[in-house]
Design a protein around this nucleic acid. Structure first.
Lengths: 229, 229, 229, 229
DNA sequence: AATGAATGAGGCTTCATTCAT
DNA sequence: TATGAATGAAGCCTCATTCAT
């Protein structure tokens, strides 16, 4: 999706510069937030005057869209490749997990912008990426459904199960920075262990838990009421 | 935490109006985002002139902090109450889960602002809420550690385990709206089932999985390389 | 000049409160400047709500006028008293000097406002105090003229001479605070010694001075030109 | 000291416009006061939109600082040049006087802002100009001290003597406008005559003065007491 | 391919003043 | 006498965007 009015010819140097500008923008957006990053900041960091910037990007929102693409496009093509593999549903899910975590970990700044500033896009852009996201989520949904059809997965609500998988993975972007580097395969194995063990085993309530739980809930209600006054 | 310079007398009506202004702000912030919501918008929605608004709030950032408090304060007092109960670690974790999900579900707009706009706060506010958040997370950490000491929980990295629990719960704010209403206790049971089953059971790799996995990873690498050009 | 609408009756407590409010205002104005001091600040410092404040003062500008009066009125009545004394012109001038410095030193905050914020008054107030100031300056003018008539003072320009006297005294308000306390009589004697010695003695150019001066001026011109480029 | 973020290229036209904006600001500040002059007023007078204005100035306070520099910088470089001349202390003082009065008379509007709105600057700016002012005053101090070392000047308090010199000169800005044009050299000669004659001659109290003075002071006390009620 | 200059709407905040109670 | 609540204009400043060159 090149900048408007830049469709003909402009090869080589143009696209190289363009990518550079986006690189710079990603860094600033992820560090300071989309709203708090001015176009001027981007220009300065890229060593380009405002006019030149607009020659490459078209608008601030287009820049945001471009960053989204950089995350979504690999995610979708990898998911498509995974879908074609002839593997068990567990492995398929683990591969999707690794693909997703690869982006989250190795392109943390892109993902930060992608997951956090999504709402800043409006109109056509918003719809476009709603659809793309939805397509990715379908891959996960379908994979889990596969396991269910095989009688391996025991869950009532498929939607919710898919979302739980995403919860587990996506929120990682929030706390990743500032921690020691994580390896994609290890983190993926950790998440998938929890998730797969959870959805493939039936629920076994420990004895006495129900009573304790009821007690606790009563206590919480009391605290809530006390705070209300 | 009343607005600066508003310490004289001001009872009843003042505090009622104040709460009303915050209510209005929460709604707008959660709908349109903090950065995209102008103080003027809040004033208009509250039926108050710009000047009067500042009589109640002090600053836009103070408003944000106030919203944070509305989420964090109950969370912390409930967590404290839970900590004092004499219950199994599973039940304790489920109660923490229910407490957290109660906020996420019943005060969804507050939580949206709380989880999404956290970074907009700066200086003292930021530190303040970093600490409060950290205190809450400690409750979860401690509870899981309790299970581990009892030999029930089998995980290597306690930090990561705590974060996984938070991932599972917190990201819920992202997709909650637009879905049919969820019951706190059901969602909590679902999340806790997955999480507790996961961390209390050892990992059992299905036969043949390793090979398939390796195959899949090779495929992913290929896709990645192809996209690189 | 009581606040508008406060003319009838309002004795005792009213006037006491009023003076208190002005006291507070003087302190704040002299410390932070007239423009930078809000009516709210005054209210807070006086322990009065905004409404009550306006009951006593009428307007911020009226407050400023009132402070001016507190300086000008004693100055004018003392000058009138001095004018009636049967003393030499030197003594008369020294008494005027002492009267003026008494205000500058003992009511430094009032004088600060009086001399510095004069221009903030507009319309009628401005004219009023232009006249009052002018009346005071006349006393000095007349006194010096007396010495000139007696053949003791040798100056060409009476206006300028009067203004030089005022320069010497008035600018004191700028640097007074932050220095060790000065005694009115000593400072007055110092200023009057310089001034009276100066205007009662003829000018005697030291030998060689003219030439050096011309040299210096040439040097200054060069510096000025160099900076201009 | 160009506006922040304006370091790229910007020659010629930029600096010309910048100077023009400052010129306009000086005029408005000196006429209406710094606090009472809005940035909008400056823009309007300069024929520039608000945004463009900030392209040139950075902030209102930076504008004020710039104006200060326009006065202080020449003052300091001229003083430095004077310090290097091999002339008598009287001539040196007269040259300092002429340098100072040159600014006061020929750049009256700048000096008005410089002397009157100094207190509006805060933080770093304030310190910066406190230091610059202090450096200039040192030149005067040192010069007078030179005369004293030579046994020509008879004063007790060097600080006070320096300040008296500044009083005499600086306050001129207050009444200069609205009078017929003054020549730098004449006014300087007038001031220096008074000042030098004053500090180089011993004090000779006229006979009978002490008694008259005492009488007058008693009278003043009476007036003051009468006003107190 | 790139620039610097300009725009104008909108950002948050403060302020002197009024008025019903 | 005194208050708290409200106003609305004005304050300074930032920003995404455009355009002649």
């Amino acid at each position: 999706m090149p900048a408007a009015g830049a469709e003909r010819g402009k090869t080589e140097r143009y696209y190289r510069q363009r990518e550079r500008v986006i690189d710079v923008a990603v860094e600033l957006f992820s560090k300071n937030g989309y709203a708090s990053t001015g176009v001027a900041d981007i220009g300065e960091a890229a060593g380009l005057a405002r006019g030149a910037l607009y020659y490459y990007i078209g608008s601030k929102e287009a820049l945001l869209a471009e960053i989204h693409d950089r995350v979504m496009d690999p995610l979708l093509s990898e998911a498509a490749a995974i879908a074609e593999l002839d593997v068990s549903f567990e492995v398929r899910l683990r591969l999707l997990s690794e693909s997703l975590l690869w982006q989250i970990i190795n392109r943390h700044d892109h993902v930060w912008v992608f997951l956090h500033e999504y709402h800043q896009m409006q109109g056509e852009y918003r719809e476009l990426f709603r659809d793309k996201r939805s397509r990715f989520e379908q891959h996960i949904h379908v994979t889990i459904a596969q396991g269910r059809k095989q009688g391996l997965v025991h869950v009532k609500d498929m939607e919710l199960t898919t979302l739980a998988f995403l919860n587990l993975h996506n929120y990682t972007y929030q706390w990743l920075s500032g921690r020691r580097p994580l390896k994609v395969e290890e983190l993926s194995q950790f998440y998938c262990h929890i998730f797969l063990t959870g959805i493939t085993n039936a629920w076994q309530q420990p004895a006495g838990a129900t009573k304790e739980l009821r007690l606790g809930r009563t206590r919480l209600q009391a605290v809530r009421k006390a705070a209300g006054s």
